[in-house]
Design a protein around this nucleic acid. Sequence first.
RNA 1: GGAAGCGUGGCUGAGUGGACGAAAGCAGCAGUUUCGAAAACUGCCGUGUCAGCAAUGGCACCGGAGGUUCGAAUCCUCCCGCUUCCGCCA
Length: 423
Amino acid sequence: MLDIKFVRENKDTVKKNCELRNIKCDIDRLLELDGKRRKLIAEIGNLKEKKNEINEKMKSGEGRESLIAEGKTLKEGLEKLEPEFEEIEKEYKKLIIQVPNISHPDSPIGKDDSENKEIERYGEPSKFDFEPKGHEELMKELDLIDFERGAKVAGAKFYFLKNEGVLLEQALINYALDVCLEEKFTPFTTPDLAKDSVLLGTGYNPRGPEQQIYSVENTDLSLVATAEIPMGGYHMDEIIEENNLPLKYVALSHCFRTEAGSYGRHSAGLYRVHQFSKVEMFAYTLPEKSEEMHTYFKDLEIKIFKGLSVPFRVVDICTGDLGGPAQRKYDLEAWMTSRNDWGEVTSTSDTTDYQARRLNIKVKRVDGKKEFLHMLNGTAIATSRALIAIIENGQQADGSVVIPEVLRKWMPGNLEIIKAKES
RNA sequence: GGAAGCGUGGCUGAGUGGACGAAAGCAGCAGUUUCGAAAACUGCCGUGUCAGCAAUGGCACCGGAGGUUCGAAUCCUCCCGCUUCCGCCA
């Protein structure tokens, strides 16, 4: 969330930013509530001050009767104002958390993902001298995946990985972890559930009408959509010494998404599923260092995907496609034959102090001053999408699939190619 | 899941319903002393929020949320967490 003082002092900037981000926010109403809220805080404060004065006088024991009467009157006054305040506070909080982060000045301006800007490209769309297949068909033929039984057991968009599919997933995880460990990230596995307060703090909206999150009934828990959620909550309500920053974490978790209403060709197969595994980078940095860290995350993602030998490009996400918390966001998009297009495989966001303010995470400077720190996240590997990229780009005329060299050391017998089983 | 105990500032740890934003100690900061340091001594030393250019002032905060009361760290209810014991279990 933004600092309300900033909103108050930069009303037009904030409004314009909401517009460019394609997010509807009633800033005027927010500021109106802010005014009322502050007025009530002052009024209630005054009444309480009087109340405290009376209590002070009570100690001497003189004029008990009239003081008690006066105290009761004050109490009644407070009982009127406090519910009024709570109601305003509730609406105020609801509005302030909807206001998106201020976009980076260099973020391309655009209304939706069609206006994201390609900034780097590594390789060109794969060409085949045969008719290429999609990963769904390839994986079925190679007996690497079972969607039908996934649906039988858990519903549409769930799947069983099988055989080399399982090994490949583990290899991807190991590979991404390895790259991050070389870079001195601290590794984690996380809870796959998190409290609604943590979801909210990281900018995810549990239990809403358009929710992307599975919530567990009769609890305040939800299944995490990404390890960004538990890793953001990890330091909630903490103050971190400047000398301990940056903190670079890499976390392995399962990710659960409802993906409500997203069916059709562009979400076929593994592209859009309810559950996948992900290795996620996460960082807490000094405010002046977050942009540098963001570039570093992006470059690490590039390193990881170069290693997988698939064609991909980097896009700078435009304002209308940024979502709430990100100041700036880069996605890697790998070439996917099933889409005959680029498909998102990673995403890295600099949320500046937006999440930190909500989660109340501060840095204590060497000179003792405290301020909100900056938080960033970035995908190292999302297994489902990475599988699509390596399988579709590694396919051979006979339907076999070449395994990227960097993964082979985690495959039994340094397996180089997955071939159809004899039957 | 059952039983008992506990939850107070950066840490340790006092706190009969009015003296308490909270003793004391440690740590930290500044100073005296010293060539310098240690020790000793003196002073300062929580956070949030609202108003204010500021100095400063108001309010809130003793795990969290309610309640009783003119008044709650202190009494009551519920919740959360920690510790120990029992049960169950990968």
